[in-house]
């Protein structure tokens, strides 16, 4: 008697568990469709023929892999790649290098006005870039003659980037004081402490902030539109992609093929650096 009762209770919880499992996973599959289908349709259109791309067909009749080659060989496409890499690469190196000492000082030094300073960093981080664009454009274009290049976008990163400072500081706060103090007692100067002790410990945060910055630059459309639009030799992928549809007189298949080629590297990098990413996002919102 007692045995059977026990058994039925287990099977009851078991079936409740199974039901729960099914419900959760059915929901997850449904959600996946919402996230994956757009990618799928973009890809399927990218390999359609010119004639088919303007029809209501969902599945390609012939697989035109050559569309990717056509896009790749579009005059300018390689230049856009090079410019984007320059903007994102150099911008990221500069931003991380210049932000790290600032973040360290804000996290570990005691000085008057530190909180005010932190508030200013957060305010700058939240400042929409469009607010100051008019004087900034006049400054770079009229005074420094750098319109038509990406330098107005890259150079400011040599002077600290608010978001990078914020992110690094949030992480540096979590490093126990004992480590830095031990280094100091050993006679290390602050700069050496930062480079020898803090940087190795902060590697994940540095990687995360570098990735964020890299993608920010990679995705940026507003900046290149303002500063580089007048010189096709300085266009980036994001800006060039938009002009692709008009200037190169194409239809949806080639436009979608170009879209795939712009999305692909981001996704590849993500697969290699997934962990750093997720940690980074968490750091912006949760810790602190």
């Amino acid at each position: 008697m007692t045995r059977t009762m026990k058994m039925s209770r287990t099977s009851q919880t078991l079936s409740r568990g199974a039901l729960h499992w099914i419900a959760v996973h059915a929901l997850a599959v449904a959600a996946s469709l919402f996230f994956v289908l757009p990618f799928l349709f973009v890809f399927l259109t990218a390999v359609m023929s010119d004639d088919q791309a303007l029809t209501r067909d969902l599945w390609p009749r012939t697989w035109e892999w050559g569309n990717f080659g056509t896009v790749w060989e579009t005059p300018g496409f390689l230049t856009w790649w090079r410019n984007t890499l320059l903007y994102a690469g150099l911008g990221t190196v500069l931003a991380v290098c210049s932000s790290l000492p600032v973040a360290y000082a804000l996290a570990k030094f005691r000085f008057r006005g530190r909180n005010v300073m932190m508030m200013v960093v957060i305010a700058a981080m939240m400042l929409p870039p469009q607010v100051i664009i008019v004087p900034m454009y006049l400054f770079w274009a009229k005074q420094l003659d750098l319109a038509g290049t990406l330098w107005p976008l890259i150079i400011p990163f040599a002077f600290g980037n608010a978001f990078t400072i914020f992110l690094l500081r949030q992480f540096l706060l979590t490093i126990p004081k004992e480590y830095t103090e031990a280094a100091r007692i050993d006679g290390c100067g602050e700069l050496r402490t930062l480079l020898r002790v803090v940087v190795p410990m902060a590697k994940p945060a540095i990687a995360a902030s570098a990735l964020f910055h890299f993608f920010y630059c990679w995705n940026d459309y507003f900046g290149p539109q303002i500063y580089a639009s007048e010189n096709p030799g300085a266009w980036t992928l994001s800006y060039g992609l938009e002009s692709f549809k008009g200037a190169h007189q194409t239809d949806w298949n080639l436009t979608m093929a170009a879209t795939v080629l712009v999305m692909a590297p981001v996704i590849v990098v993500f697969f290699f650096a997934q962990k750093a990413f997720v940690e980074g996002v968490t750091l912006t919102g949760v810790k602190g």
Binding site: L241, M263, I267, F270
Partner: peptide, 13 residues
Amino acid sequence: TLFYLPYLAPPVA
């Protein structure tokens, strides 16, 4: 990963 990927797609694309 599937849920996260679209966030990474460049806005213009």
